[in-house]
Amino acid sequence: MNRIALAASLAAVAATSVAFPSHAQYPDRPLKLVVPWAAGGDTDNIFRPFAPLMQKHFGQTVVIANVGGASGTKGAKEVKDAPADGYTVLGVHDYIHSTYYTGVADVNHADFEPICLVASTPSVLTASPKTAWSDMKGLLADAKARPGQISVGATLGSTSHFFPALVEKATGVKFKYVSYEGLAPRMNAILGGHIDLTDSNLTQKGKVEAGQLKFLGIAAEKRNPEMPNVPTLKELGVNVVYDVNRGLVAPKATPAPALAKLETACLAAAKEPAFAAAMKLQGTEVRLMDRKAYGAWLKQNDDLNRTISKDLGLLKR
C-alpha cells in the first residue's frame, strides 16, 4: 500500500514538472553547448575547459554535443532550428561568415543572438614532417616550381580554407585543396604525410616540439610568447594576419532574460583564471566581448569576410 502511495506521489510530481515548465526559474535544466566540429579538434579543445566554468556560473549542467559535418554548418543549423528557450547554444567561430559567403550553407550570423566572445587564436601555417622544406622560403620556392601540386587539407569554405588562400594571394602561389573536416582529422592526415600543408594553431605545439610537425609561420602581428621561435608571416614578407575568434551564440528570438543570464555566466566563466590558464596551453588569447560589443563585431567581421571571399574569388552570393 505504502509503495503504491509513493509511486502515485512520484507520478504526480513528475506530471506537474512536465505540465508547468514555465513556473520553474530559468535555468532549470541542462544547457547544451553545440560544438560544430569533431571531438578533439581545436574548437572542442577550447570549449571543453570552458564548459565546467560556464556550468559553475550558470547553475546548471553544461553538456557539450559535438555535431560535426558540412564545414561546421550542420551544428549551426541544428542550433538555429533548436527551440529558442535558452537551453541550446552554439560554440561558433569565423566560419559562420565564410561558409555563408562561399555558399556552403544558408545559415549566417544573423540567425543567432550573440552572447559573448571568449577566445581568439592566431592561425599558424603548418607543414607535414614528410615535406622537404624547413621554412616558408622553401615552401614558396617549391610551390612556384610545382603550381597546384602542394596539397592543403582544409574544411572547404571555412577558416582553414581562407587562411591558406590568403597566403596564396599574398605570395602568388597556387595550392591544391583536399577536404578534411576539422583539425583532428587533418592532424591524422598531415602526420601520415597524406597532405603537405594545413592551417593549425598553437594547440598543436606539443607535436611540433616532438618533431612530428613543422610550424612555418604564425599569422599574427607579434610572435607568441608560448613559441617565440615561430616567426610571424609578416616578418617573412607574407602580409597575412588571420585569427579565429570563438564565442557563444543562441538561436534568434531567445528571450532577453535568458540571454542576459547566459551573457553573465559566459563573461564570468571566461574571466576565471582557470580559463586563462587553459587557453594559454592552447596558444589562445582570452578575448572578451559582451553581448553588445560581440554583436557589433560580428557585423563588422561579416563585411570583412564578404570582402575576403570576393578577393579570393570564392564569393557565391
Binding site: 569533431a38 571531438a39 578533439g40 572542442d44 557539450i64 559535438n66 583532428a184 601520415g192
Partner: peptide, 11 residues
C-alpha cells in the same frame, strides 16, 4: 567515446 569528447583513431 564521441559523446565524452574523445576522438578515437591513430592519435
Amino acid at each position: 567515446l564521441t559523446i565524452h569528447g574523445i576522438q578515437s583513431g591513430p592519435l
